[in-house]
Amino acid sequence: MPQAVATGVPDEPTRAAIRRLADDIEQSDGAPPLSDQALSHLGSADVAHLVASDDGRLIGYAQRDGATLELATEPTAVDLVLDAATSTGTLAWTHGRRSRLVSAFEARGYVEIRQLHQLRRPLDATHPLPADPPLADDIVVRAFEPGRDEQEWLAVNAAAFAHHPEQGDMTLTDLRARMAESWFDADGFLLAERGDELLGFHWTKVHADGNGEVYVLGVAPGAQGLGLGNGLLVRGLHHLERRGCPTVLLYVDGDNTGAIRLYEKAGFASYDTDVQWQLS
């Protein structure tokens, strides 16, 4: 009989099964059901884990970080996992408009409180990139150096995303977990400096399907107005172009109108939407 139980940190075979389930859901629903944050925490004791199984076969997984919940479930296990994992005040994500969880959340009285838009831009001869925008002569753009740049990057990231619910709270443990992922490439993690001061950064990512991502683009509050947002964006896009990425994607909050304008000017257009829901 199917059952869902809270568990400790999943062992490696269980983590592998969760990743396979997430891959299957992505193929069916058109978007990964778990964020990079959730995937990086599969082996973490700092979040709560729940596993649903049927005769020893994994059919669902839920991860709770404080009030925030992310789920990956087979269609038949959605209600089972939600019954076991949710309570009043729960915040939960659906990834993509085709997510199998949308109708389940609506039926249970969840309300939409936040939208995270996915934008995309092709990288091909019919959509050429502009030349790198000029920066001040004393600003240098270089690649991230593991073992040297972590703490300063964390400080600037926290300041740049002080009001962002997830990105601004990234810890050294979170950063190291991302750096341990197979996709991490320090050469695609661009830092803009003036002397020893970090002013901004563009962290790019290449997905397994070959598409690139503007993973995180941030500018220190004191460095606003120097043209770093567009300057770093274009330089990162050129890096992804050199990597052979046919398309670049990114995620941006629906209320971040300044960032949306920046990306639209760079040729990005709406592609899909993630939604955060709350159970009241």
Rank of each mutant, 00 (worst) to 15 (best):
T204F: 08
E193I: 03
Q151Y: 00
L101D: 11
M170Q: 12
D138N: 15
T173V: 14
A131R: 10
H202N: 13
D137Y: 01
D83K: 09
R15D: 04
S53K: 03
G225P: 05
R178W: 08
R114L: 13
H41L: 13
E241R: 15
L101E: 11
L250S: 00
L172T: 09
P122T: 07
Y263W: 04
V140K: 12
A16V: 07
D138A: 14
A17C: 06
F161C: 05
P13R: 06
I139P: 13
M170F: 14
Q115S: 08
L198M: 04
L58G: 05
G30M: 03
L240G: 03
V9E: 12
L91C: 03
T14I: 11
D138T: 12
G212V: 12
E264M: 02
P128Q: 11
L198R: 01
A67F: 01
A159D: 15
K265N: 12
H163P: 02
R114Q: 08
D185P: 12
A52W: 03
D46G: 11
A180N: 10
L129Q: 09
P33F: 07
V248S: 06
F201Y: 15
H95Q: 06
H207M: 08
Q27D: 14
G109M: 05
L198Y: 05
S87T: 10
D24T: 09
R194I: 12
R242V: 07
R242D: 13
R20L: 08
A186P: 00
V219W: 02
